[in-house]
Design a protein around this nucleic acid. Structure first.
Length: 561
RNA sequence: UGGGGUGUCGUCAAGCGGUAAGACACAGGCCUUUGACGCCUGCAUUCGUAGGUUCGAAUCCUACCGCCCCAGCCA
């Protein structure tokens, strides 16, 4: 017996454990992740991916990758590739189980014939407008279509000719024959097939008849032997049809659909439609803009797969609608990178410091741990000399109480180097501080004084003579409102944060960073975690993305005062 | 006014008739050559509301209230 508390199971894992216990599906667990290839995956999809693949992994099952590609007018091959890459990058493997709903078009069609023969489906020749009229409203029942009682022969003939391309778009649809008075609108003779003379990214021009999601999904699940079909809450109303279809068809496999609440995060939008708008209207540089909460955006920003999986673990799973604070995501990446990212020193806003009593021509090598808690990550050398850069924020001419950084007459430690004291402040004509003159304590090499005096502040620094230059991009939340969609009167785009990207040129980095390779992640001490940008970095130019800041209790203190 | 869901700390979220887990946030303290990390302490006498059943209710019953989804030939 262990004393560690068992992590509580979510309601879906509870159901699955129960099913396993009762041998409901012969002890099998088969799930599926069914994206539509009409956009990039986002953090909300990560929740579903972690759930579906996670649950399979935990139960010796498998998770199928299935593209729900039933609408040729919105879908593209490029999205298929991007989605596959994202899922793999997240760390999941579908093995041989890569499927496309379009692979089932022929079987789906045969099932359509079967439904017609059973008298459970008919060709309806009402216009789209009329179908809507006949459907009724939320509170009034619908009316039966005048075409509802066509003979099986006529339906068969029409359906065959629909496939053959004899009719124009919108002239006929195939509908299930269920109940026009049902309180559930999805049961009022839902459309199964529509005519679409459009070419499909996989089947080309083979078809001009395409199945609807509601019809395709249950059958695809059944064909693949899915045991648990996990989807989001808005499909709860569709479950009766899901079950009706498979019961009517008498498929040997009848998966159980279970719905869970989709992920919402503060300070962002999560719908593909809105993300697409941001891309198309150039509010961001693309689907993989580091400010986008797409998987590819997060990847480029520097988030690790492990941090995203950890995040999905923390947020839990339930049926009630909720909105997770952005801080939880940030916490996930800090947690991961705190353990794994090597430390380095970088100065974002350089302020020159001259150590007046340090010999002009002298330079010395100092060793610094790459990680404070993990000696196995080794040490590196940094060069100290008479001229260095510190962060502008680390100096104040008239410091408030508890400002432990540099100020006239105040002593601080330069990380792993020496204790220095500020003697003189040099300013330009506008009164802006341009340079500091300091003296160092030669006995404090390494950063501590032999007399044991306490120095509270420690600053990061780089040698002005040895530092390399880099561009650093600071990102902030894309929206400046917790829920950009809350205000129905205004467009979500009017809540975009104008300061979501700040580009800093001429940042100064310790020379060791010149050897960084694409996607390397570092903690720049006292600043945050940074990742070498994979797109804009070139041999002569380093570009770092700030993934997330470090927690900053000084900033918090300042704000509360 | 039809149908389907859902209401437990600021935010997520356990709990399944035996007397409110955990995480993030927040507050205070310790530690610190990163104001980081780490560590310690505190943080729902109360579970949408009102009744009822019971020795005992967040858990069962009744009524009410709030919020979300559904009227695509989208998924």
């Amino acid at each position: 017996m262990t004393t560690t508390q068992e992590k509580s199971r979510d309601f879906i894992r509870t159901i699955i454990a129960e099913d396993l216990k009762n041998n409901k599906h012969g002890g099998r667990v088969v799930t599926r992740f069914p994206p539509e290839p009409n956009g990039f995956l986002h953090i909300g999809h990560a929740k579903s991916i972690c759930l579906n693949f996670g649950v399979a992994l935990e139960n010796n099952g498998v998770c199928h990758m299935r593209f729900d590609d039933t609408n040729p007018s919105k879908e593209e091959l490029a999205y298929v590739e991007a989605i596959k890459k994202d899922v793999q990058w997240l760390g999941f493997d579908w093995g041989a189980n890569l499927f496309f709903a379009s692979d089932y078009f022929e079987q789906l069609y045969d099932y359509g014939i079967q439904l017609i023969k059973m008298g459970k489906a008919y060709v309806c020749s009402l216009s789209a407008d009329d179908i809507r009229q006949y459907r009724g409203t939320l509170t009034e029942p619908g009316r039966e279509s005048p075409f509802r009682n066509r003979s099986v022969e006529e339906n068969l003939d029409l359906f065959t000719r629909m496939r053959a391309g004899e009719f124009a778009d919108g002239t006929h649809v195939l509908r299930a024959k269920i109940d026009m008075t049902s309180g559930n609108i999805n049961m009022r003779d839902p459309v199964l097939y529509r005519i679409l003379h459009a070419s499909h990214h996989r089947t080309g021009d083979t078809w001009c008849l395409y199945p609807m999601y509601d019809y395709t999904h249950p059958i695809s699940d059944a064909i693949e032997g899915i045991t648990h079909s996990l989807c989001t809450l808005e499909f709860e109303d569709h479950r009766p049809f899901y079950d009706w279809l498979l019961d009517t068809l008498g498929t040997p496999c009848h998966p159980q659909q279970i719905e869970f609440a989709r992920l919402n995060l503060t300070y962002t939008v999560m719908s593909k439609r809105k993300l697409l708008q941001l891309v198309n209207e150039k509010y961001v540089s693309g689907w993989d803009d580091p400010r986008m909460l797409t998987i590819s955006g997060l990847r480029r920003r520097g988030y690790t797969p492990a941090s995203l999986r950890g995040f999905c673990d923390t947020i839990g799973l339930a049926k009630r609608e909720s909105s997770v604070e952005m801080g939880v995501l940030e916490n996930a990446i800090r947690n991961d990178l705190n353990d794994t990212a090597p430390r380095a020193m970088a100065v974002l806003h350089p302020l020159k410091v001259i150590i007046t009593n340090y010999p002009e021509g002298r330079e010395e090598e100092l060793a610094i741990d790459n990680h404070p808690k993990n000696p196995e990550m080794g040490k590196r050398q940094v060069t100290f000399c008479r001229e260095i850069f510190i962060e502008q924020d680390d100096f104040m001419e008239e410091p408030p109480k508890k400002f432990f950084r540099l100020a006239p007459g105040q002593e601080v430690r330069l990380r792993a180097a020496y204790l220095i004291t500020c003697d003189k402040v040099i300013k330009d004509a506008d009164g802006k501080v341009t340079e500091l003159h300091c003296t160092y304590d030669p006995a404090s090499r390494g950063g501590s004084a032999p007399d044991g005096r306490k120095v509270k502040g420690t600053l990061h620094w780089v040698s002005a003579r040895h530092a390399i230059s880099a561009e650093i991009r600071l990102y902030d939340r894309l929206f400046n409102m917790e829920n950009p969609e809350a205000d129905k009167e205004t467009n979500f785009k009017s809540h975009l944060n104008p300061d979501s990207l700040q580009i800093l040129a001429g940042c100064r980095l310790e020379p060791a960073l010149a050897g960084a390779t694409v996607s390397d992640r570092f903690q720049f001490e006292r600043l945050g975690y940074f990742c070498l940008d994979c797109l804009d970095t070139s041999p002569g130019k380093l570009v770092f993305n700030r993934i997330v800041t470090l927690r900053d209790s000084w900033e918090k203190m300042e704000k509360s005062n």
